[in-house]
Design a binder for these strands. Structure first.
Lengths: 245, 245
DNA sequence: CGCGGTGTTGACAACAGTCAATTACTGTGG
DNA sequence: CCACAGTAATTGACTGTTGTCAACACCGCG
């Protein structure tokens, strides 16, 4: 689990996420490498609403998926955001404030301590890293806006397509997606809690998209069959095309 | 519009928002007072999706309501978050990143320049203000989580009730709500875009809550008639009771 | 008085949740 | 290799919720 291969895999995720905006100094590069050493493992859980969640200090995922979610009194649950390799989990500010949502692994999960990255925000020592961290936090809030729009204003197929396009882009950013496909091992149960559907309706939505030959989900793989039509259906705008870029 | 009364009103909002967590130093108090001077005015707009929006530099509302929203290709729109007096509008980070949503006034609006407040985050000069700003940013993201949960997992009445309880609490924090009521001058059109409903369904939902004598909306006033039952219906947790506090 | 914006209502169609049963997939032990 | 159990995916029938369309009521204002 902690072989040399894994270590370089971890580094790949970290580097790809942090050097996107510009060059890192030697010191910053070293900081990233030192992080990769302290990776950790979290076992998967089904019915994660009763499972133990990931403990408080901020971490970054290097392998596996997690979910930031809220548990409702009536037993339902809503996933606020899916966390993928290269994403932070738990807020980076050092405030002891109610986060008001929990984080749980959706698969085997490996994380590294992100506190050193959070600390770059405070001082001037690592400007490029600090900038990257800030821009990742910003991207996170934009993803939340997308989630609100999906839940509030999109049709079932549009919602699903939009989520798949988002995951494809996010995974692609860290080298975990092919041209028109990516690996996704979420149960329809979990997808329902992301999209605000019932399990049955998730299934029906997938059938629909399958019939229309727009995308397919099988064997833990998502195939985006007709990118153009999917984007149109979902009202999708690639992050690179957002105003301001 | 810029009388002495307005100035003290502005100060009241600012002080109530920033001194909640602790005492401000003399210098910090002065910084707030200097802000109150540069207030500004934005005219209201209906059909705000085509109206001009508030320009880039970060500001804080001292009077009136605004909406942070996304305009969809098919003409629909989704309000991500309602911005009330004491709230920031536009992100505080100095990054030139795509915000991917616009902000428009929902009423007459007065704002002050929030750049000096954003700048407290960078240096150690105003620790109490910086802490207050950070905690406000954190609160904003928690409100976004609430919005996601509302849209994803709550019934029509629950959604509406939850939003009203949230607005009551947020307005109360800056002294703009009574014991069981507050002033709200949103059209059902706007409420629909917040809640992800059609206008007609917003109306039906209000009728329902009215029939059940849980709350009433009339003459620009929201009356929370039965706090307990509303909270139960909405699965509402007051911010003070969130885990971590 | 007419007008535009807003709130309200009813009829209908489309969408989505629930329940219950069936099928497919996976890993385990014999 | 098969049987088995447990999980996940799928389907149909039914019900309840929500959107759409269209009409009407109400109000403030010129």
């Amino acid at each position: 689990m902690h072989s040399a291969d894994d270590q370089t895999g971890h580094l790949h995720i970290l580097i790809s996420r942090f050097s996107a905006d510009g060059m890192l100094s030697h010191a910053e590069d070293n900081l990233l490498r030192s992080l990769a050493k302290v990776s950790r493992y979290h076992p998967p859980r089904r019915d994660f609403y009763v499972a133990e969640t990931i403990p408080p200090p901020p971490r970054m995922i290097v392998t596996g998926w997690a979910a930031q979610y809220r548990q409702l009194a009536n037993g339902q649950r809503q996933i606020i955001s899916l966390r993928l390799p290269g994403d932070f989990i738990l807020p980076l500010n050092r405030l002891r404030l109610p986060s008001s949502c929990a984080v749980a692994p959706l698969s085997e999960l490996e994380t590294v301590d992100a506190q050193p990255l959070a600390d770059t925000l405070a001082g001037p020592a690592h400007p490029a890293l600090a900038h990257a961290v800030r821009s990742m936090m910003h991207l996170d809030s934009v993803l939340l806006y997308d989630q609100v729009v999906r839940l509030g204003r999109q049709s079932a197929c549009g919602r699903f397509a939009h989520l798949m396009l988002e995951l494809h882009e996010r995974l692609g950013r860290v080298g975990l997606a092919e041209e028109g496909s990516f690996a996704m091992s979420l149960t329809q149960d979990v997808l329902a809690d992301v999209l605000g559907f019932s399990v049955v309706h998730v299934n029906r939505t997938i059938q629909q998209l399958r019939r229309d030959r727009l995308l397919d989900v099988r064997h833990g793989m998502v195939l985006l069959l007709q990118r153009e039509r999917l984007q149109e259906l979902a009202g999708w705008t690639p992050a690179a095309k957002l105003p301001g870029h």
